[in-house]
């Protein structure tokens, strides 16, 4: 039995063996916003914020996450609202198939929390662990540089 605070709400869960935090979030807590793609930390689509750090939830053993505070894409903004990075992605059409979008949104939100006006290079660096296989990087970068008040 583990205890997690996810998006401000306390949960208990019973992960099976060495299952990942991603599996626990999606399959046991019903939070399917974090996407399951490469399952080896290459693609960033499962990114969550754990105790203030951006991590790939597929690489966190759920049993070792006991006691931690997690923010998933569902918790970036109150229900029915958008986080500024999500609004920026919508407005700049920074979404194609959308599968990578939750991971990009979480990584970008984590960046803007620490650095409200990042440079274009800061943004590229912060998103270097997120892959968009539609290769929609141009629109994603335009969305976030716009939010930062930077020229892309």
């Amino acid at each position: 039995m583990i205890r997690l605070t996810v998006n401000g709400i306390e949960h208990t869960a019973e992960p099976a063996g060495a299952e990942s935090l991603l599996a626990t979030l999606r399959d046991r807590l019903g939070l399917a916003g974090s996407k399951d793609a490469c399952e080896q930390g290459e693609c960033g689509s499962c990114s969550v914020i754990m105790d203030g750090e951006l991590v790939c939830s597929c690489l966190v053993m759920a049993a070792d996450a006991d006691g931690s505070e997690i923010t998933t894409v569902e918790g970036l903004a109150p229900a029915g609202e958008l986080h500024p990075v999500q609004r920026a992605l919508v407005e700049a059409h920074g979404v194609q198939c959308g599968y990578c979008t939750p991971g990009f949104a979480v990584a970008a939100a984590h960046l803007f929390e620490r650095e409200p006006s990042p440079s274009a290079d800061d943004i590229k660096e912060a998103l270097s662990g997120n892959i968009c296989r539609c290769t929609g990087y141009g629109a994603i970068l335009r969305a976030l540089t716009g939010l930062a008040g930077e020229e892309p």
Binding site: Q40, G41, C56, C58, L59, M61, A63
Partner: peptide
Amino acid sequence: LAGGTDLMVEVTYGGRRPASVVALR
């Protein structure tokens, strides 16, 4: 188990099923 970035790949892709873990973080 430290950061898990190697071990969890072995769990997911290598079929590794540790019977017991000592977590260090």
